[in-house]
Design a protein around this nucleic acid. Sequence first.
DNA 1: GAGTTTGAAACT
DNA 2: CAGTTTCAAACTC
Length: 704
Amino acid sequence: MFDLSSQGKECKNLDAQKVVEDHEDRCDGFLQLLPGSLQRVQEYEDFAENFEGVAEVTVDSMTNDLEASEHQRGMSRRCLQFGDAQPEATANCSSSSLANDMITSRSVATTSETEGLGLSHVDLSVISRKRQLVNLSQLAINMIPQHYGEKSSLTVSKPSGIGLHLNSIVNAIPMGRGGTASMKLAVDSMGIQGIKSASVMSCQSMENMQSCSDAFEKVLAAPQDGTLEAKACVIPGSAASESLCTMESIDCQTTLHRKRELSSEHGDSNEMFNQQSPKKKRKKSSNSTDGEGCKRCNCKKTKCLKLYCDCFAAGIYCADPCSCQGCFNRPEYEDTVLETRQQIESRNPLAFAPKIVQPVTEFPVTSREDGNWKTPSSARHKRGCNCKRSMCLKKYCECYQANVGCSIGCRCEGCKNVFGKKEDYCVTEEIVNRGGGEISESTVAAKKDFLNSDLCDPHYLTPLTPSFQCSDHGKNAPKSRLLSRRCLPSPESDLTVLAKSPRSPRTSDSNDMLLETSKENLDVGSYCEGINYNNADVLGDGCHHTPLPNHPSIILGSTSSKARELTSLSRFPLGPRSGCLSSGGSLRWRSSPITPMSSLDGTKNLQGLDSDGLSDILEDDTPEILKDTSTPNKSVKTSSPNGKRVSPPHNLLQLGSSSSGPLRSGRKFILKAVPSFPPLTPCIDLKGSSNQNRSSCQENSSND
DNA sequence: GAGTTTGAAACT
DNA sequence: CAGTTTCAAACTC
């Protein structure tokens, strides 16, 4: 890892040092947070070793890639941090959590950079506090490979907020690219950090940043041949895409100040670009995505401050490629963006949550030797579509656009979704339920679960995790990047982290509560990372969801209530951007940055939250500006799952019990990944034993 | 490139 | 909560 400095051709010595420091800091997180000590370094080294030496290779490749990337156009899109991380704030709120640590460390680095730039600390902290962009750490978390998890339990995840919005998803990655093994490894083993480091090193200027971003994208996008290596698959709409964004955002965040300064320079062009020439950019209106990645918006009336805007919805700032007019979704208007986001979240806490979720169990989830998933992903659109005329065969359909099949939650008519018809899904669920026995309530129940789960269930969130392979799901959807999900180990720390990890300042209070609960949850549940959009998944991590053989429905059924709770919790906390937490935490965050944590406590607090807490939080958070329009409390209630708006918390209460089947299953999965940490919960299942676990879990759930 | 269609998001 | 309007993407020509 340290080699990075030497390898970074573009990096200056200072940068290299920063990078190193940054890594160290991160390591600290793993280790425990004490900054600066030699011990840390040592540990760091150890940590590096864990990477199996891949890091070096990766780095090289990364470096090369980065260079190459320079040629490409970077999307320098910054992701909004939804919750995140702020150095100071973080320290206070969640000093203990890994995520926080990660963040903090990152912040520190940033700070130093900032200082170099002449910015003040205070400034930075303030800014960062507000910033909701996804942090690298989040990405890292998501991306973090098993190695991390295995060893250190890094799971850090920050809530990354970005959900997998279809938007972000869309772009995902060019599948065609054949990434080199090294790249893959990089993603896989190095995880975000490695990438980040590399990028950081190379990024000295905006351009560089963009390059870096590109590189990240490339990395992420690296084709997955279906090999195990191809873990970093991007799934459209999935965590993967988020990851990308996150990575970018990371850079961005890191150099936030720098950017701003630069923005004056580059920004001019950007702004002009955005505001002036709307069509200029519309390179292809048809594909609004850059080749690499992110979709570009073309908003004209919403100023990119509504969910109509893909960029905004994805939690990222608009960038050059966008042809929007009067865009306010830019770093310069960070406050406005944040307020708006909060407002929207107040209305619908899950508004920024990943749209694509994966049921905890898919059978085939398991990866084949070749790394490809055996079965198509069970990922489904959280809310489901409402297509009337497109028969779910066009991109008008969000399910189709995300390369996922329709599910019970869909209200589409004449569904012919090639990725999975709604009818089929229902049938499957029934079958599963029946088979599962326990669960089998009825499809109705399943449906409910599904819906709820979307929101809450981390499992559903599908993050892509790089680590796994992502092959196309069986589906092969054109774009499909499927989700691969990986479970991060959720180390103990993770739990803590999660809990702490703050997504949004507001949650700080709730966080505490959450923390405790989160731990419980974590233990109980696993977290998978969602790769997906990664981030979204982060939660996923929980996701780890290991793909239980069970059908999602089963899970739902079995634990429906619990699952719901979990899911709901996860979501809240997660926040849209939440990335992936590695562990359970991630899940929570994902949902909405806002509050999930509280929900975590769930058992304890959930109720309170439901009625008041959550809403209160939301309200408080709601920016004054937004207040005008927003109605805080309502926000909390989101509409029914079917409806677009989800209601968050209802089930949270149960979380406490936590052990929802699904979660457990997920957790089990995680455990596998990380042997060192024995599964806390009974249900943990290892991949191999997934079935057994499952059954046990189900039993538990049923018992519960 | 302009216009139409579509369905999500926002509003009432 | 349901219905309507607004919006921007997807699509068609």
